[in-house]
Design a protein around this nucleic acid. Sequence first.
DNA 1: TATGAATGAGCATTCATTCAT
DNA 2: CATGAATGAATGCTCATTCAT
Lengths: 219, 219, 219, 219
Amino acid sequence: MCPRQAAQLEQLKGERRRAVLRAAREVFARKGYAAAKIVDIAAAAGISHGLVHHYFPGKEALFAAVIQETVEAWETLVAEVRQQPGTPWERLVHLCSRMMRGLYDEPEHLLVIVHAYTEDAALAVRDGLNRYQRQIDEPLVALIEEAQRDGAVTPGPPEELARAWMAMVKGLAIGRVMNPASALPPLELVLRILKASYPHSETTPLEPSNEDRGRLGSL
Amino acid sequence: MCPRQAAQLEQLKGERRRAVLRAAREVFARKGYAAAKIVDIAAAAGISHGLVHHYFPGKEALFAAVIQETVEAWETLVAEVRQQPGTPWERLVHLCSRMMRGLYDEPEHLLVIVHAYTEDAALAVRDGLNRYQRQIDEPLVALIEEAQRDGAVTPGPPEELARAWMAMVKGLAIGRVMNPASALPPLELVLRILKASYPHSETTPLEPSNEDRGRLGSL
Amino acid sequence: MCPRQAAQLEQLKGERRRAVLRAAREVFARKGYAAAKIVDIAAAAGISHGLVHHYFPGKEALFAAVIQETVEAWETLVAEVRQQPGTPWERLVHLCSRMMRGLYDEPEHLLVIVHAYTEDAALAVRDGLNRYQRQIDEPLVALIEEAQRDGAVTPGPPEELARAWMAMVKGLAIGRVMNPASALPPLELVLRILKASYPHSETTPLEPSNEDRGRLGSL
Amino acid sequence: MCPRQAAQLEQLKGERRRAVLRAAREVFARKGYAAAKIVDIAAAAGISHGLVHHYFPGKEALFAAVIQETVEAWETLVAEVRQQPGTPWERLVHLCSRMMRGLYDEPEHLLVIVHAYTEDAALAVRDGLNRYQRQIDEPLVALIEEAQRDGAVTPGPPEELARAWMAMVKGLAIGRVMNPASALPPLELVLRILKASYPHSETTPLEPSNEDRGRLGSL
DNA sequence: TATGAATGAGCATTCATTCAT
DNA sequence: CATGAATGAATGCTCATTCAT
């Protein structure tokens, strides 16, 4: 077998694995951990249930992989937003815009997190998620804090604002997954919680851009 | 058996039933439908698992009863708020305040709804909930509409505002049940989505009141 | 429920548990650990497979319980033989006689040990057995040593004699379980490995006795 | 492809097959039929599990082949011993010596037989073995009978003696495979069951010989 | 009523076997 | 030939539900 074939095979395997992961995310998001059956995931991925265990040791590991993927996507997104030019408020808008798009394109990404917080999920997974919690919350809190210093965000404990905002996003994710036909609120509405009542900057350019798709922009 | 005893017995039965219902709500909220085990609920209610089936035909019916109870509490709450004196904005604030208190005291009430929307729950239950959907959303939408006419609520499609606001409340319910130690955001913050940027009325009296506890005020 | 009933219930439960244990021993002995199916055991005990898990946490625990029972029976037997009157040789004959009867009545008891030594069995069980090994071998070795000092047993390392003798007994257990119709060799034959060629004592009274049945004499 | 290459290939194939067979014997002996996994055998043979099915139609056939090989080795051994010069007792000693060496070098050969007797193995295999049973036992019985006529072996039903002796050998095989560090008892000890108490011949020359290795002398 | 023993459908997981590459 | 991806039957285990006591 020549190296080219071997590489192709490897790639094919990776693709298959990713397909299983995507199917799993969908099913886990829609049904929750306990109600999601391995056969459902296999069917959604177009393979037999036995093959799922070829790529993942078991249901729990599969769920953990789904969560990990989401956490990584979040981290990538935050890192990108961090080095965005402009005012803190513009970066916040950017982040928010990206999340709304993620909510539109792949709401499962977020909903799966909701399920992970539930006791529905295996304890091991929840523990793992708790360890990430800091990494997930802190960047958002930092961003809000900066924007507050600029007077662009309403005063008050930034953790509180972050929590309320994330709560809304999670709630929207639920609605989005369960009823894909339902529209999402416009960005301005979602930003109302944060925006200072008498905003110093009138511009909310709303991020018209671009191509950001795939793994990175999926959140 | 004399009538008095019969009545006592009947009452005891009702109490027991309610205890099971409460236990079920808690467990369903924490674990979701599929992961919630009848034995868990029985243990939480302090009875044997066999006895649960004396009060409810089965797991699905039990979950349906939990949902129904929540829907009824919501309806009662809305009806009460409707006939509250004051401006539409004041009634909205009252509703919001009551919900926040419900979120504080019995977040399960709301979280259970989240699970019900999930495909985790039996199809029959979800269908039932969908039928109620109108009754749940409409009063809130109406209230928002009225307040918009007064200029107290920001303009825009009232359904959109209602949905975003409910999304946040659901998200907060998740956080509350999973981590009871976490604080809830203040009422003002939660109202920021709705409140007009240049509010015509500066007063948000915040409803200091009263005794409303128990089944009705629990939402 | 009166105490009498409770006690009866408790006893009934114990009986059922023992029935499952007996069935398990039989099936494990005949098939080995891996090939023994829980349904087989359940069927042999006359119950459903689900009920097996009411009495034992799982297959491995069930097997461990079977082994433990056998080890305990062996310990009881050895303790009894120890305080038997007569010469060491007579005690050895007594032990041997009892084992032959056990081989006749309940060969599963011994065969199950054979399977436990195999890698067929779960590692945990084998480790557990290895810890008992000393307790199992030592008393026999001691008995042989004593009898050697009397000149009743042929000279040589007593461990070697014990091992050879135990090997034969295990081999006979295999034959006995797999073909219950096959006769066992007489006691004299089984003792030939041990007996001194020119026995100092012509008497081998061969233990005509008695009632020893049940758990104790079962080995 | 030239004939030479074809022959080499054929030979290679035969070697490979034999390697698989050897690996299978080892794994089957250690784990039993049911617990032995094809992948284990493949790994032990240094090939992929898929390739095992190029050489053997399936697991059962593989086990059957292992058993057959053992039976054939036994038959060869007996045939060789038959035409050995000397007294019947000397031939018996020779047989015994060869078996002890087999026990030392390849105890799997014998242990596999133990597993085959167990219901662990597929029924077909066990039936096959039962058909061989006569061929296995009879020569040993005949040999014992001859030696009894000479007075070299203790009197009694020769089948009984044969069975007891085989039982011990099987038991020793178990110990040997499971704990390769354990020593085997000396030939004299193993022969004590058979040897007449007042042996007419003092000589037990113990067969110092030779090269007999490989398939034939392995039992 | 109240209990928990008993049942069996449903699910995760394993593994022999097949087959495309 | 050789590999390992793919399949699905088989199996241990869970848990909702029933029912004898």
